[in-house]
Design a protein around this nucleic acid. Structure first.
Lengths: 240, 240
DNA sequence: CCACTTCATATAGCAACGCTATAGGTGCTA
DNA sequence: TAGCACCTATAGCGTTGCTATATGAAGTGG
């Protein structure tokens, strides 16, 4: 019951809270569960942490410090924007591996209780984007870029957490990540105009696809599939 | 005390909950406050709404319906991507004008209680992006684009809510918005210099055709042919 | 006109919650 | 040994979400 004896109660409380937060499936975690698992009584909790949220903040800080530490060890790949992408993935991974902790951190933030964690995460991203800026790789001030990317990162992570585990599609994350990094970077010639594709009917689209397919030798379909596919395309596109 | 007499209790509960949610500064809203303000007793609430979350969902739905209604009246500007931007701004505006409602909707979503609202918002965006796809303006399937944009939109809105009102900088929103729309659109010659220029036009054409086909119920193909055709289209358009 | 069901609301209260007033125990310093 | 912090426990307050049960009103079939 009191799982970890002879450690100081403060640490036992932290561990008990972390364990319950990590394992509780959606339902809230009560102070009574925590104190029971830690083998202490209620006043001990309030003596050390002030209130329930104080305990959770402490747990979150510990978890986040750990995550940030692993982040820093592993950061410099030479390509700052690649590092930004990896920080994004790490953020998502952190949220998915400890969803309840994550929701405590980012899901319930309000103006009057904005956790320092958000600022920390922002600073970490900004630091990396600063390197990219020095290398002339971004076209937006690093602070704004960091805030923007972090916001999108949080949104994606929350969406993924909200999805049933078996339906989670990490492509949402990589796609949004690349969109954000791309939009912020100077990697591309943004001003160049594309071909005018103003027409919008089925026929026009089918003709365009038909031409494009024949020109590019797509290997997504086998040759027999392609033949039938093109025949159908022809039927569609010749039906005005 | 019971502020709106002679209305049905169900509606009085909805209004009381909405008012308390809108005015409560961060602190939680209790069922007792709600029922007292509505002038009814507890079982009435549970008879009509099941539980507290059911009430909140109903309030949120009502508020969201209102927001969606104003959205639809005002939508077709002829330029789908511009409409997407305006939907983004409306989303942010909704979150900032009713932050507690918004947090109930998007801040606490968990796998087992994912509100239908998220799906609704996604569908609304997807509908608009579908128009863009038909016009050949996006290079990503509309559903994925909608999920991605919505995720970023939610993240930005939560970040803005978390900031003190006087520090709120809407530039975070416009910048992230434009980044997402830009990354998804074909407005630019993204791949022109890269190796995949031919393939990317196939992808764009396939996406446009897919959207157009589903919108127009073409009868050029039988339903079984259409099914297979769409599956191939999906394979082409989801190849990266 | 009366039983009968159905729906909607109220009385009263349970178990669990976050939290605290108060007191007792422990180890240190004088 | 006395005094003093510090830490922890006993016991319980007020509030929470929710419900077992009962009562009233409204319609329906005989």
């Amino acid at each position: 019951m009191s799982f970890d004896d002879q450690l100081p109660p403060k640490i036992r409380l932290l561990r008990a809270a972390a364990e319950l937060l990590a394992n509780s499936e959606g339902s809230a975690v009560s102070t009574r569960q925590i104190t029971k698992l830690a083998g202490v009584t209620a006043p001990t909790l309030y003596h050390h942490f002030g209130d329930k949220e104080g305990l959770f903040d402490a747990v979150v800080s510990a978890g986040f410090e750990e995550y940030v530490a692993g982040e820093r060890d592993f950061a410099p790949s030479g390509e700052p924007l690649e590092d930004v992408r990896r920080m994004w993935d790490n953020h998502v991974q952190f949220g998915l591996s400890q969803p309840h902790l994550y929701l405590v951190m980012f899901g319930n933030i309000r103006p009057e209780s904005r956790p320092a964690i958000v600022a920390d995460a922002e600073a970490l991203l900004e630091e990396m984007l600063n390197k990219a800026a020095i290398a002339g790789q971004i076209n937006v001030p690093p602070r704004e870029a960091a805030r923007s990317i972090l916001a999108a990162n949080v949104g994606v992570t929350l969406m993924l957490i909200a999805e049933p585990v078996e339906e989670r599609n990490l492509e949402l994350s990589t796609m949004t990540r690349d969109s954000m990094v791309f939009a912020v970077s100077t990697e591309t010639a943004r001003g160049a105009a594309a071909e005018d594709s103003g027409k919008s009917s089925v026929v026009v689209a089918a003709i365009a696809l038909n031409a494009a397919l024949q020109a590019s030798h797509s290997d997504q379909l086998s040759s027999s599939e392609l033949k039938l596919f093109l025949e159908w395309l022809h039927r569609i596109s010749s039906s005005s």
